[in-house]
């Protein structure tokens, strides 16, 4: 069901109703969404909701068109990006991305158990090692020195990270399909596991993205 943007009888612009971004475009909350039809919907709605079209309208309509346009832009920007779309769905499902680490810490404190790290230890080791190399490279650059072995090491790490990044996106898309299946077959019991896997993949990706950015800055 698509959100109502215009009155069905008089055709006038309506205030945005509180729906999620998927519904705003009339989509079900599926992740493997067709970006071509998203774009088509976006342009079609933009043409009809644009505030310029309401320059002569009454203040109420002008305000509604502004609100609708703003929501339209936010919804489009969020849904067209694969990562933002996934994060958005996780939030819709009640997962607070920013709070996960704090929540795990609070649990560990209360139970006295060792906190389950949100990021796997092997990846942490790799991140740490590479950061050490990058720092070394920075120090050498300051001295005007150049260590070919170190550069080669960093180059190799960069390739391995890029491969990991691609693999993560591939895995994420696999989870999208699983998620979408649960929408079709209504198997809600399958959803928590899929959500947890997607969250894990996004967490790993965050690290790798930051690291790739640092590597690229360092070798420039």
């Amino acid at each position: 069901m698509r959100a109502v943007h215009f009155c069905s009888s008089c055709g006038k612009v309506q205030p945005p109703v509180p729906v999620d971004y998927f519904m705003f475009f009339g989509f079900t909350a599926k992740l493997d969404l067709d970006t071509a039809s998203l774009e088509k919907e976006f342009y079609a709605l933009s043409r009809r909701l644009h505030p310029d079209l309401f320059a002569q309208a009454n203040p109420e309509e002008r305000a509604f068109s502004l609100e609708q346009s703003s929501m339209l832009n936010d919804a489009y920007r969020t849904l067209k990006d694969p990562i933002k779309r996934t994060e958005y769905l996780l939030r819709l499902e009640g997962i607070e991305l920013e709070e996960q680490s704090k929540q795990a810490t609070e649990k560990a404190r209360a139970t006295g158990e060792l906190k389950k790290q949100v990021v796997p230890p092997d990846l942490l080791e790799e991140v740490f090692e590479l950061n050490m190399h990058l720092e070394e490279l920075g120090a050498q650059k300051k001295l005007g020195e150049d260590d070919p072995a170190l550069l080669e090491e960093i180059g190799k790490a960069k390739l391995s990270l890029e491969e990991k990044h691609d693999a993560l996106l591939h895995d994420l898309k696999t989870e999208w399909k699983k998620w979408d299946e649960t929408i079709d077959n209504g198997r809600e019991v399958d959803r928590p596991k899929i959500l947890a896997t997607m969250l894990d993949l996004l967490n790993r990706r965050n690290y790798i993205r930051n690291l790739l950015r640092d590597v690229n800055e360092a070798v420039e």
Partner: peptide
């Protein structure tokens, strides 16, 4: 202890 914050990608030893 080697830990990381997924929110920002920081790593701390």
């Amino acid at each position: 202890g080697l830990v990381g914050a997924p929110e920002c990608g920081d790593v701390m030893k």
